[in-house]
Design a binder for these strands. Structure first.
Lengths: 198, 198
DNA sequence: ACAGTGATGTCAGCGAATGACATCGCACCT
DNA sequence: AGGTGCGATGTCATTCGCTGACATCACTGT
């Protein structure tokens, strides 16, 4: 994030490269400094050297700027599920996908921490996060159906997977001694099996 | 709702009884007629015979008017979990709670159908619904902890329960031959056990 | 040089939401 | 009955998110 290279930098006016990236950077820093609600889109645009109108050309709304990455995550999850061996059970395919996603996030822990700090301080952002997670579940469920899994099992496995991911993520973020994220996922999944199995 | 008795009815002005109920009714009917986005708060207030400002005194925002009932549902779920027999496993306590909630909704099927039609037509409302469901999960998890269940198991059982509830609800709403809702919950829970157990 | 194209700026406007203050009707007290 | 306090409502002004319409700028190719 703070290492983004911007070649030309005299005032950051119109036509400077990477407008979207500048907007993301400006938004994240302002959200961290003053909180999400206290930040206006006008301020973000100003810091990025762009107009308010341009912000809305790049992001559907003020929240979306924080969730740009979820599309990449979705693609990773879907391709992981799709490429699991034929012999894998639905939940095994989901588990493999979640672990690869966990490994990806682990490479950007600092960024994830900042992001989560902003999100957990604001209800609107939590709503957006939940619908993004639901979209991930929906995409994984579809990938399972492509593997021939029936609709009910696919939906349940995918949604349960997201539950496991959420729980593991929260632990990974909040614990001081940063344990291995994929390992936390395996642990949580085992506990879910335990709890639901009876 | 449509049976609400309103004693005085000359213009429904200031001081007519049940302002909140009138606002709910007006909002729901307008959302059904023109959709959520196309309805302005001014229109809702006008139909209820109140000012726009008063709408926001009764509901935090334009969406909240559709989710008033979730508080009662939460209380039912929590008390069900709390009153499950000591011998009940976490997931059994959750299942009992979900079934009683399902039975409650089943008594108001028509209302549930209308509500869901409005919600599924609008992304903002889906976001709000998801965070309400998350609040239900959180409350049930807390109720489980009160029973001595450890944090991880409590969270997972409660969240998995909500997943089961969502899936069963969707089937209950969308299937023409209206099957018994609590029965659908039991079915979905069995499938989850199957899918996660291996 | 010139025209076309995509990204940006400018401007006007709607609607959601909130704060400040006035007003109304009711319950209660004397 | 008259007065008083209080909660619910109305009115007004304002901020901010967001969108449509149109102008402008820089680059690309001819």
């Amino acid at each position: 994030m703070s290492h983004t290279v911007i070649k030309y930098d005299r005032g950051m006016g119109r036509w400077e490269p990477n407008a979207r990236g500048r907007l993301e950077l400006a938004a994240m820093s302002l959200y961290l400094e003053h909180g999400f609600e206290q930040t206006t889109v006008a301020e973000i645009a100003k810091r990025a050297g762009l107009s308010e109108r341009t912000f809305f050309r790049h992001f559907a709304d003020k929240r979306e700027v924080l969730f740009w990455g979820s599309e990449a995550l979705k693609e990773l999850l879907v391709s992981s599920v799709a490429s699991a061996p034929d012999s894998a059970t639905p939940i095994a395919a989901i588990a493999a996908a979640l672990e690869s996603a966990g490994a990806l996030l682990q490479e950007r822990r600092e960024r994830a921490l900042q992001r989560q700090a902003v999100i957990s301080a604001n209800a609107e952002l939590q709503e957006r996060e939940l619908i993004k997670l639901a979209a991930l579940a929906s995409a994984m469920a579809e990938a399972l159906r492509q593997r021939g899994v029936n609709d009910l099992a696919a939906t349940l496995a995918a949604e349960a997977g997201i539950v496991v991911f959420k729980v593991a993520f929260e632990r990974w973020i909040n614990e001081a001694n940063q344990r291995d994220f994929p390992h936390l996922i395996r642990e949580s999944l085992a506990e879910l099996k335990d709890v639901s199995g009876g």
